[in-house]
Design a protein around this nucleic acid. Sequence first.
DNA 1: TAAAAAAGTTAGGCTATCCTAATATTCGGA
DNA 2: TCCGAATATTAGGATAGCCTAACTTTTTTA
Lengths: 143, 143
Amino acid sequence: MVSASLEDYLEAIYEICKTSSVARVKEIAARLEVTNASVVGALRVLREKGLIEQERYGYIRLTKSGRELARDVSNRHQALADFFNSVLGIGKGKAESDACKAEHTLAAETIGRLILLKEFLGTKASPKQAGLDSFRKFIHERE
Amino acid sequence: MVSASLEDYLEAIYEICKTSSVARVKEIAARLEVTNASVVGALRVLREKGLIEQERYGYIRLTKSGRELARDVSNRHQALADFFNSVLGIGKGKAESDACKAEHTLAAETIGRLILLKEFLGTKASPKQAGLDSFRKFIHERE
DNA sequence: TAAAAAAGTTAGGCTATCCTAATATTCGGA
DNA sequence: TCCGAATATTAGGATAGCCTAACTTTTTTA
């Protein structure tokens, strides 16, 4: 298992690698607002867990399992931020910061249901079927 | 500010005091599944922050500000557990454990919106107005 | 190409939170 | 009432995560 903090590091590396192909200590530190020293400490642990690869003083890449884990965290983050903002109408900034924290704590099942709820509310097909009961049916149909 | 951990202690004391009028170290330890020693350490901090009163070897009571804070945490917990279970259809156990963690991380505004969303979905009055747009109107009317 | 700048690392320290083991206090029953 | 059981506390230690300061390596540039 990896802690919430380590998930944050993985997620940051994942996001950076989307555009840069490799990540560097400085970028991770900037994104997470911690010092380089803290990043180095976290990277050592991630390396020991086989989630990243890095040569001394070199670039940082996710391993297969690191990438899978990071992608999961990132997906949870996106889903939550989107739900908070586009369903609940929370401002983007707060939606992001809430997602940042809740992505580590909410069960995958819970987040999955939030995604369904958004779909349900976006459904124009059957606007007459509002309400909890029809949301339950909606869940049942897709799971 | 109090940490997530201290909020858990406050909440436990609050719940215990609902039925017993005072709390004891042993009960708090049992509820949070930590040792007595950990409870004692946390109580010292809560005392320093003026959130509880306790004589040496004696009973534990919340102060006014402690009770207010504990009530807030407890309310967030209830609202989340209820939303997860009764709206999302998550099993009670998981709904509780998710609530336990998210109660410390989600902004009050976010939790407030979840409560509104439940009300909205429970509204029988206007079942034709399903969908995100009418939820937004719904929010607007009550805030 | 050598010195300066930038980036990465290490060493050591701090705080929060938990633990176990030992000790102190309180309380209930013989 | 006094002794043992129950409860509370203290002492000391571990871990995680962050920091600053000093140092090393790499990169840039004059």
